[in-house]
Amino acid sequence: MAKFMPLSQAVAENLKDGDTVAFEGFTHLIPTAAVHEAIRQGFKDLTLIRMTPDLIYDQMIGMGMAKKIVFSYVGNPGVGLLRRARDAIENGWPRAVEVEEHSHAGMANAYEAGAAGLPFAVFRGYRGAGLAEVNPNIRSVTCPFTGEKLAAVPALRPDVTFIHAQKADRKGNVLVEGIIGIQKEAVLAAKRAVVTVEEVVDDFADLHPNLTVLPSWTITAVSVVPGGAHPSYTHGYYIRDNASYLEWDEIAADRDKFRDWMQKNVIEKTADDFAGRVTHLRKTA
């Protein structure tokens, strides 16, 4: 059952060196505050899973926290490549990183298999693609009913998943609105799940019953971090900070500039600083 606690405590109690961890969010609701807390606590040898690694994974990779990344797209959305990830993959700085690349369909099905407690996912995919030639975890099976050859990938079962969401009620149920992505499946597939939220409310009584609600029994810890998705957006709370994504490309291009920025903007900050970062981005829902 979900417990409410400060983010620093939630990260310390649920993330360990060597863990396989997913920090999931698609377009918005990216759990930046949780990543920054993990960076401050200095975890290492992590296997990072995410369908769309962007700035937060660039930061963790650049800080030497990742030994492997499992992904289906890697880049600074709307801007270009991830320079710290590329430096690690091509030059081994600050350490070499193993890569396991999939398609979006492969990752989504693998999360769903993990959420269902299955050992692998079976789907139609990778036909005419070359990913299977470089990724030994992409295999094939023959349907016992039709004889059709299908793609198969191992289920994704993170040790811990972190997501950001709009609201939690006082029982620890979590409401996710807007573009959902794969967050629900990533939570259900994980051994532990930590959710940062914009606010806590009494209940969800006035909302549509078909909205995505993660029940409290699927959540390990809830931390209230207003602005915790910045520079991505949180539907109904604040818009995307496009300037930060453009700025990151310049920051990440230089190793020393990157280190200086991380020291000033992450290491020396706390989760409480996020609320102030989005004041000018807030809008009426």
Rank of each mutant, 00 (worst) to 15 (best):
E199Q: 15
P136C: 01
L150P: 09
V194Y: 07
A186M: 03
T161H: 03
A189V: 03
L211Q: 04
D203K: 10
E177M: 12
A155V: 06
T196F: 11
L214W: 07
A155F: 11
V141W: 04
A190S: 14
E177W: 01
V194H: 11
A189Y: 10
T218M: 03
D203T: 11
W217S: 07
A190E: 13
N210T: 06
V197R: 12
V174T: 15
V153N: 09
V153S: 12
N210G: 01
D206G: 11
P136V: 02
E198L: 08
L150T: 04
V195D: 08
L150G: 09
K171G: 12
C143E: 04
Q166P: 00
R192H: 03
H208D: 10
I163T: 07
A168I: 13
A205W: 01
A205S: 07
E148A: 09
L150S: 02
G181L: 04
V160N: 04
V195H: 04
V153P: 14
V201T: 03
R170K: 15
E177R: 14
V213A: 02
V195C: 13
I182Y: 14
R170A: 06
V201C: 01
N137G: 03
A190Q: 08
I138R: 00
A190W: 12
A193W: 11
P144M: 08
L156G: 11
I163H: 13
D206Q: 06
A168D: 12
R157L: 02
H164V: 01
K184A: 15
G147Q: 05
E177V: 14
G181H: 05
I179D: 13
A152H: 01
I138D: 07
E199R: 10
P215I: 09
T161R: 15
K191W: 02
H208E: 05
I219F: 02
A186H: 14
V197E: 14
T196C: 04
K191S: 05
N173V: 13
H164E: 10
